[in-house]
């Protein structure tokens, strides 16, 4: 698939020549990518390939240094209203990063109340709805420390959902989970796509990538080497680097 040189304003996310430096180190190397509404993108690649940096650029937790990032036709740069951007692009982390001093319910209502100015009762109603969607409504009054890893990750997803985002970024969401919890999270992520939410997920979980992704983005050394449907990627990778990567993954 050949992309045009200018970004596509009709895509949910359109990226052209996106680069990022840490001092002299090139972390992201001229990435081009279009992601359409409701798409499930999985980013694969060896450690240090720039996957996490890449998705952190999408909500500007890490600002990019050059290139164009466009979300719903709006250029994201240093003049962008970050509050609005982060309202429409949610994020879920590997270590959940729940607020330990707040109950599950308060974790879900804090940002909507502070950032969006939603009343407590409205925020709680929304939170309870999403908590039931991720099947932990009964844990609403507990503190994060009382929950298992899988349960905490569901709360983290519910917390992101409470901001009503159009896009959710997942930064290795299952890396700290046991296989049983992983399948639960996979189910939830599938539901998100059905609701029209675009997901971009960094993972090392091959089965997960295979079953959930609409397209696989394969990265190495800050550059995107392949963008292909999962069947093609896993059976007939186009680049030598992807073949080595897959061989190593399967061996482990």
């Amino acid at each position: 698939m050949q992309l045009s040189t200018s970004p596509d304003p009709t895509a949910r996310i359109s990226i052209r020549g996106l680069s990022k430096f840490y001092k002299d180190y090139l972390a992201l190397d001229r990435i081009d990518l279009d992601i359409s509404k409701g798409e499930k993108i999985v980013v694969l690649g060896p450690s240090g390939s720039g996957k996490s940096t890449f998705i952190r650029c999408l909500n500007r937790i890490e600002p990019h240094d050059s290139g164009v990032l466009m979300i719903d036709g709006h250029v994201i740069d240093d003049r962008t209203d970050l509050t609005a951007l982060r309202g429409s692009v949610g994020m879920v982390f590997q270590n959940y990063n729940l607020f330990p001093h707040l109950s599950v319910l308060d974790n879900c209502t804090l940002a909507p109340r502070l950032v969006r100015g939603i009343t407590k009762s409205d925020a709680e109603a929304t939170a309870r709805r999403y908590l039931s969607q991720v099947n932990i409504a009964e844990q609403a009054e507990k503190f994060p420390i009382q929950l298992s890893g899988g349960q905490q990750q569901r709360v983290a997803i519910a917390r992101a959902l409470c901001m009503n985002p159009e896009i959710i970024l997942f930064d290795e969401p299952t890396a700290a989970l046991d296989p049983e919890s992983i399948s639960g999270i996979v189910g939830i992520m599938r539901d998100l796509a059905d609701q029209g939410i675009t997901t971009v997920c960094v993972t090392h979980e091959m089965g997960f990538a295979r079953h959930i992704a609409d397209r696989i983005v394969f990265m190495d050394r800050g550059a995107v080497l392949e963008v292909t449907p999962p069947e093609e990627f896993f059976t007939a990778p186009r680049t030598e680097r992807a073949r080595t990567f897959l061989a190593q993954m399967i061996r482990h």
Partner: peptide
């Protein structure tokens, strides 16, 4: 945990809100 600031950031909270509602209550303990 620095992840706390990251999470607050990703939810669109301002620096002041992050200190007031996320960092200070945990640091206080």
């Amino acid at each position: 945990d620095p992840g706390q600031v990251l999470a607050a950031d990703a939810l669109g909270m301002t620096t002041a809100q992050t200190y007031r509602h996320v960092i200070f209550p945990q640091a206080l303990r």
